[in-house]
Nucleic acid binder design. Sequence first.
DNA 1: TTGAAAGCGCTAACAC
DNA 2: GTGTTAGCGCTTTCAA
Lengths: 319, 319
Amino acid sequence: MARTTVQDVAREAGVSVSTVSRALTGGTVSASTREAVQAIAARLGYQPNRAARGLITGRTGNLGLIVPDLRNPFFADVAKGVTARARAVDYGVFITDTDEDPVAELEALASLGRNTDGVLLCSPRSPDADLRKAADPATTVLLHRRVPGLSSVVADIADGIGQAVRHLIASGHRRIAYVGGPEDSWAARQRLAVLSEVPEVMVLDPVAPTFEGGLGAADPVLAGPATAVLAYNDLVALGLLHRLAARGVPVPGRISVVGFDDVSLAAMSHPPLTTVTVPKDRSGSVGLDLLLGHTGAPGDQMILPTHLVVRGSSDAPPS
Amino acid sequence: MARTTVQDVAREAGVSVSTVSRALTGGTVSASTREAVQAIAARLGYQPNRAARGLITGRTGNLGLIVPDLRNPFFADVAKGVTARARAVDYGVFITDTDEDPVAELEALASLGRNTDGVLLCSPRSPDADLRKAADPATTVLLHRRVPGLSSVVADIADGIGQAVRHLIASGHRRIAYVGGPEDSWAARQRLAVLSEVPEVMVLDPVAPTFEGGLGAADPVLAGPATAVLAYNDLVALGLLHRLAARGVPVPGRISVVGFDDVSLAAMSHPPLTTVTVPKDRSGSVGLDLLLGHTGAPGDQMILPTHLVVRGSSDAPPS
DNA sequence: TTGAAAGCGCTAACAC
DNA sequence: GTGTTAGCGCTTTCAA
């Protein structure tokens, strides 16, 4: 299965390799030559070697996507958005799952940076300084994270949180517990900043941004006076729901639960979770367009809208 | 940020480019030279250009992974296994999400086939013939699908189903409903073949292999005499659980529910789902090793063990 | 409009 | 053990 090269096509067509190249990539060639070359290339099943092309053009036609954990439905959604858009614009995408390891993240950034035309980076927790040092601003777009000097696409967290809180207050809640995420997480700090200002909100100890984190937070929540609880994200909310059910605590009868992100699982729980929709896949496609210069300018900070989705896990407080 | 090349490292180290290449790729070099070169490469942040390397070695150092849907936790797990192993052996992974589109799948196979050293393919539904025609047996490994003539890694579905059924029967169930998956799905056919032989099992109409599919199957199940239901997969089981809860039907009090795959959500439901564990991430890493020839031989059909996990959704039938 | 030739960055003979 | 050199397949000056 020797692959056909420009040489083969050139020989067969009786022209030079440069003419073949021009005929195939839209250079200046006579119409008849172009047709002949294209016909022969098709007949021979010629497929350009992208590596060789990239070596000379300097562009690879490939992109990188770095995520902490593909198993996390949030990042799976982001990846889905990226790959879908990449397919549409005929780019390949390398995906690296760093398994939440900041060292692996930096390594991936270095390696991918060298072998792609740009990289989309989901880094919830690495320090700003590390990112600014390791990422080339011209070829990197941050997803769901903002660092001065780097392009980014983030969701309007403050607005989303605001909608959730207003919903709860409008429903009659006066004591709202907040179970936050890791203190080194950018998104967690964003949420905390907003919620610290709300008098009705009592900030509890942060937990891991996982189902298990939510599990452990249920009892502390129940120990307080809150009639509603706002979770760092849907995974935490689901853990809360699970433990609450195990304790025989009616939701939303005794306590309302609100998540964040609106991952697909959110609609599958019982009761279905009230949460804030974050345009996850859209963030991926928008980020890709930003990276490729289809939209915006390097250095741009994009903010995508969020909106509350009221499902069954929230209602008025017990009277 | 001019990219550093072997030239730069060579100049800095005072050696030739070939010595640099050897020092970095494990050729014959003196220990002191190797150390010096490596130190300088590290200091300069040298990252080899894989395209250039691939041009000469004929190997790209990249792999392809094709999945129908990254959002499906099953495939997210598989992808996680692949990327983790790839990172360990220093390979890049192109991931293509075909969005369940068989045409996109074939296109991805063609495109990836040319630009990688091999591809791992998750294709639950494409016809055998299409796959055999489009895939190069030497550089393709099928995941969770078996097609004669192609290498593959599959789970021991028959054994897993057997364990689930025996568990149910041993618990006292005599009428077990089976809600199967799409008839054109390889895995669905595997399950059906086993279950058709079991007298206690009543096969209901197949559904989409999704949460929604499960939702719709609940009423038909309840309409019958079954005291237990075996679902095509966990997503379907979760849908079942959800609708059952909405109907006020106690699980496992009135009816037991058993899933398949053991995706992470399975442990998060209420009650937690009894299911069959499929080594999803392991299938990814094993497939990768098969592809790279670290293990087995081309054409090999690997079968990974499965095992039942009994959680809260199954128990004895109502007395 | 076309061809010859020069590399892109790297590895692999082949000398020394 | 190390340097020199010849390409891998392709695009792109530069001449013709």
